[in-house]
Each structure stands twice: as structure tokens, then as C-alpha cells.
Design a protein around this nucleic acid. Structure first.
Lengths: 119, 119
DNA sequence: CTAAACTCTGGGGTATACTCCACGGTCAAG
DNA sequence: CTTGACCGTGGAGTATACCCCAGAGTTTAG
């Protein structure tokens, strides 16, 4: 699979793919004689794995430390569950903070409504 | 008020204050003959205003575009309310996305639990 | 053979909100 | 007069996830 195909199949830009390569998220592809990159199918699957993980809220760094799950999912159910649970707690925590922010915003709105009615 | 006092009273670092100055969030202070900065009291109040706005989720850029509220709060109740409502919607939107993320995470956890029990 | 399309690389730019460093001037105490 | 605290400046660095550009080799169609 050449670069153009991978771009097309993954929906990612060449720069994103290159960036993932540089960050070590996907392995360096082989080269053909003209130095063009040749990706194995697994890279496409890996990119899907990465996309899913991103959607779940994982950063690229976190995903990088999780690649063993992609390569041997069956072996690491427990650690997968741990990672997911941790992220779940993070997300819940963030939601809580935002709920607090919401309350404060509502309070401020009330304050200005009150002030306005006193003009 | 000199720099040290403002740092002390605001709880911000010298670098943060300087940064706010550069960004135009607080006005350039006067200088004494030795070139030391001399802040008026209002700057401290302004820093408190900024801190509050930050807590409500506003970025420094947004805050900068909102400074007229600080300088003439009474005149702009309506626009204050608009700004707050917009931010409220933003926050609510973010919360929704995170709730979705949470559901997906729970789904993934179930998936791995299931997979594990089948080993 | 030439022009267009494809590919590679290195390196700079973006947004956010600061922090940290180093160099140098100023001031007060002893 | 010197030492240490205080103050100011410019500029680099941090984290995240990319985007964009330019220069140059390669390949393919006509």
C-alpha cells in the first residue's frame, strides 16, 4: 500500500500520517526501490485503532503507550480495562468541573439580570 | 503599588502579570523615575476580574474583548448576559460530548470484560 | 521529451497560557 | 563600598496535534 492509498483509506492527511510515524505510533514502512513508502495492511488497522482511541479521549502519548494492546489485544484485557477505567474517571472528573462552571455561569447570569432590573 | 505588592496581592507570578500586560489585558503601568512600574489599585481589581472570568471558562482572548465590562459594568448588562449565556452553551456542549465519550468508554470496558470471560 | 502528478525531506508556523533564564540596572543596609 | 534584594528586558522553552511550504527526485501520459 502506497502513501496515497493509505491517505485515501484512512481519511488522514499525509502530514498526520507522517506525524504519527515520527511520534512512533505507526512503524516505519518499507521502501520500494524508488524510496516510496510501502505500508502493510496492518498500518491501516492501526490507524483505525488510533482513531478510536482518540475518540475515547486518549492523547497520542497515551495511545503510544498502549500499542501493545493493538498488537496483542487478547493478552491484555485486564490492562485494557484498567486504562479505560482510568480514562473514564478522568472524563467524569472533567464533567464535574464543567458542571461547577455551569453553576457559576448561571449565578453570574442571575447577578447581571438582577443588576439590570435595578437600573 | 509596585510590582512586588501586586504579585503579593493578586497571587499571580511576575511573569503572568507581565504576560497579561503584553497581551493587553491590563494597562501599561506608569513608571517611577527609576523605571520601576507603578500600578494603580484598579489593576488589582482588574486581575481579580480576569481570574473570575478565567474560572468561568473564558480564554484570555475572550476576556480581552470583554474588558469594557470591567470598566463600565453597569452599562453592559445585556452584553454581559449574552457572553455568559454563550459560554454556558459552550460548556453544556462540551459536557454532552464528554457524556458521549463516557458511554463509549463504558461500551469498550464491557467489550473487554466479555472478551476476557471467553478466554 | 515534456509537463503533470506523485512522492520524499526538512523545517517553520499555529494556538494557549504561561514558565524560566540570563543579563543588567537600582536601591538599601552595614 | 559592597553585597544582596528588588526590578526590568528580551528571548527561549513547554505541551498538543497537527498544517503548510519549498525544494527536489520519480513516474506516467501524451
Amino acid at each position: 500500500m502506497r502513501t496515497a492509498q493509505l491517505i485515501q483509506a484512512s481519511g488522514l492527511s499525509k502530514d498526520t500520517i507522517r506525524y504519527y510515524e515520527q511520534r512512533g505510533l505507526i512503524p516505519e514502512p518499507q521502501r520500494s526501490s524508488n524510496n516510496y513508502k510501502l505500508y502493510p495492511k496492518s498500518t491501516l488497522e492501526l490507524l483505525d485503532f488510533i482513531a478510536t482511541a482518540k475518540q475515547l479521549g486518549f492523547t497520542l502519548n497515551e495511545i503510544k503507550n498502549t500499542l501493545h494492546l493493538f498488537y496483542d489485544e487478547d493478552l491484555y484485557c485486564d490492562s485494557a480495562i484498567d486504562l479505560l477505567k482510568n480514562k473514564l474517571m478522568e472524563v467524569s472528573q472533567t464533567i464535574k468541573q464543567l458542571e461547577t462552571q455551569k453553576k457559576q455561569l448561571l449565578g453570574e447570569i442571575q447577578y447581571f439580570k438582577h443588576k439590570k432590573s435595578n437600573k
